[in-house]
């Protein structure tokens, strides 16, 4: 195994971590501010991907599609927040899990239905990265890396920085943080709490839609694409500590790197102690369980996650 290959795998882990962060950030914000467990967050990711693919197909421009994905996911987010989720903020977790589970069914079937009516099939849709970012670029030390994946890393880190600035330095951010710690207080200060909540939800939804569009260009755009990512994003925020943006960032990078490097290194590691065929199978099996093992370990030693508030 060469060092170059290892560096490339670290980049891959970083890229998958950065995308997970975009998903996890919205999820953790919504939980931190409104106390809502939103299983339908993956559906917003899917809405973003479908909006991007549809607009890119019609106009031929990935960038217009990307803009559409932000708009569509934010709009879908506002719609469900105002009509449904608003009623759930004070309910217990069970009601929230069930209602948002119902939303997953509704979103998935509605998109299948719409796609079928418009295109006549429910097959995966086509979305290609923009021509500007096609192919591979040469990095120092002779590493060849896909330009688009590099762009994902950069875009994701920029969004992370922007989010930290937004939460840390702006009036909106102050309100959001205040909303996390004391709802009555900020209502008493004359902040329209309903509007604040809708805004936070739209922000989270737009981030999910953005992630869906970015990832849609390297994967397949299809119904059901949101749920695996949703589960990973939950793993991320639980590892990081629910409600913490910083925790979401570290959790996402940890999960991205563990998953990528585990898939790569475990089969090689087992090959040192057993025959290659069983090493491959055992390594691959263990790799698929690895992040769940990681999550269980974190929770056993720090029951509220790495950056979570101590009870």
């Amino acid at each position: 195994m060469s060092t170059l290959l290892l560096i490339e795998q670290v980049l891959n882990g970083l890229q998958s971590g950065v995308m997970l962060f975009l998903m996890a950030a919205g999820l953790t914000l919504v939980f931190g501010v409104m106390g809502l467990i939103n299983l339908a967050h993956g559906s917003l990711y899917m809405v973003g991907a479908f909006a991007c693919a549809t607009v890119a197909l019609l106009t031929g421009s990935f960038w217009l599609g990307l803009a559409a994905s932000l708009a569509a996911a934010a709009a879908a987010g506002v719609l469900v927040e105002v009509t449904v989720l608003r009623r759930l903020y004070r309910r217990d977790h069970l009601d929230q899990v069930l209602a948002t589970f119902a939303l997953i069914l509704i979103f998935s079937e509605a998109i299948t239905f719409t796609q079928k009516q418009l295109t006549g099939t429910s097959l995966p849709m086509y979305l290609d990265p923009p021509a500007l970012l096609a192919g591979a670029v040469s990095l120092p030390f002779g590493i060849q890396y896909p330009a688009y994946r590099l762009a994902i890393i950069v875009a994701g880190l920029l969004v992370a920085v922007g989010l930290f600035l937004l939460i840390g330095k702006t009036r909106l951010g102050i309100r959001i943080r205040a909303g996390e710690s004391d709802r009555e207080m900020i209502a008493a200060l004359g902040v329209d709490i309903d509007r604040l909540y809708t805004l936070v939800f739209a922000l989270g939804a737009a981030l999910a839609g953005f992630a869906g569009a970015m990832v849609g260009a390297i994967q397949s755009v299809q119904v059901g694409m949101g749920e695996p990512v949703l589960i990973l994003a939950f793993v991320v925020i639980v590892i990081g500590g629910v409600g913490s943006i910083r925790g979401a960032l570290w959790g996402a990078l940890l999960v991205g790197l563990t998953d990528t490097l585990g898939r790569f290194l475990l089969p090689l590691g087992f090959a040192e102690v057993m025959d290659p065929a069983s090493a491959r199978a055992v390594g691959a099996s263990l790799a698929s369980m690895l992040i769940y093992i990681l999550m269980a370990l974190v929770l056993i030693f720090r029951p509220t996650g790495l950056f979570g508030a101590r009870p």
């Binding site: 939980f31 467990i37 977790h93 899990v97 939950f234 793993v235 639980v238 629910v242 999550m295 269980a296 929770l299 029951p303 509220t304 996650g305």
Partner: peptide, 8 residues
């Protein structure tokens, strides 16, 4: 407890 229990 709470969401952590659900997820673990």
């Amino acid at each position: 407890s709470g969401i952590f229990f659900i997820m673990i």
